[in-house]
Amino acid sequence: MEKIKIGGYLINVDYDDKLIANHQCVGQYSSIEQKITLATGLTKQQEKETLIHEIIEAIDDIYELGLEHDEQLCKLSAIFHQIVTDNKNTISALMFCD
């Protein structure tokens, strides 16, 4: 199981083959379990998009941002996915900045 640290919380990232049965729910974040669950069977692009979306859901919850799901959170997810996908060299360079 992979882990990601957000705001001092260690969030588990796991996969569940039951999520794919409901195509409208391919990922979910649980603040109670401190866990992001992704559906199995996703393409790499869908997996990356969904993980980014669930990370932003976790940030919204942890920092109590109050983002509106469709108008703000979904749009931010799409924007961040595009930035990460189209700017791999810049993202890699950020990893090494002090």
Rank of each mutant, 00 (worst) to 15 (best):
M1K: 14
M1D: 13
E2I: 08
E2P: 00
K3A: 05
I4R: 03
I4C: 05
K5E: 15
K5L: 15
I6V: 15
I6E: 03
G8E: 06
Y9K: 12
L10F: 09
I11G: 00
V13N: 03
V13L: 10
D14V: 15
D14I: 15
Y15M: 08
D16V: 05
D16P: 01
D16N: 12
D16T: 08
D16A: 08
D16M: 09
D17E: 15
D17R: 14
K18A: 05
L19S: 01
I20L: 02
A21W: 10
A21D: 11
N22Q: 12
H23M: 09
H23L: 08
H23D: 09
Q24Y: 10
Q24F: 11
Q24D: 15
C25D: 08
V26N: 01
V26E: 02
G27P: 03
Q28F: 03
Y29P: 00
S31P: 03
S31T: 09
I32P: 02
I32Y: 14
I32N: 14
I32R: 13
Q34A: 06
Q34P: 03
K35Q: 06
I36H: 03
T37S: 05
T37A: 03
L38M: 12
L38F: 07
T40Y: 08
T40P: 01
T40M: 12
G41D: 05
L42E: 02
L42V: 07
T43W: 07
Q45V: 07
Q46V: 04
L51N: 04
L51F: 08
H53R: 04
H53A: 00
H53C: 00
I55W: 07
I56E: 01
I56W: 00
A58T: 02
I59T: 04
I59V: 15
I59G: 01
D60Y: 01
D61W: 05
I62R: 03
I62S: 04
Y63L: 10
E64S: 10
E64G: 05
E64K: 10
L65G: 05
G66A: 11
G66F: 10
G66T: 11
L67F: 07
H69V: 08
H69Q: 11
D70Q: 15
E71Q: 15
E71P: 05
Q72F: 07
Q72M: 12
L73K: 03
L73V: 08
L73P: 00
C74A: 13
C74G: 02
C74H: 06
C74P: 02
L76Y: 06
S77I: 02
S77Y: 02
S77K: 02
A78Q: 13
I79H: 09
Q82T: 13
Q82S: 15
Q82A: 14
Q82V: 11
I83Y: 10
I83T: 13
T85G: 05
T85H: 12
D86A: 09
N87K: 14
N87E: 15
K88I: 10
K88M: 09
K88T: 13
N89Q: 15
T90I: 13
T90P: 02
T90K: 12
T90C: 09
I91D: 06
S92I: 08
S92N: 14
A93R: 07
A93Q: 07
A93H: 08
L94Q: 11
C97M: 12
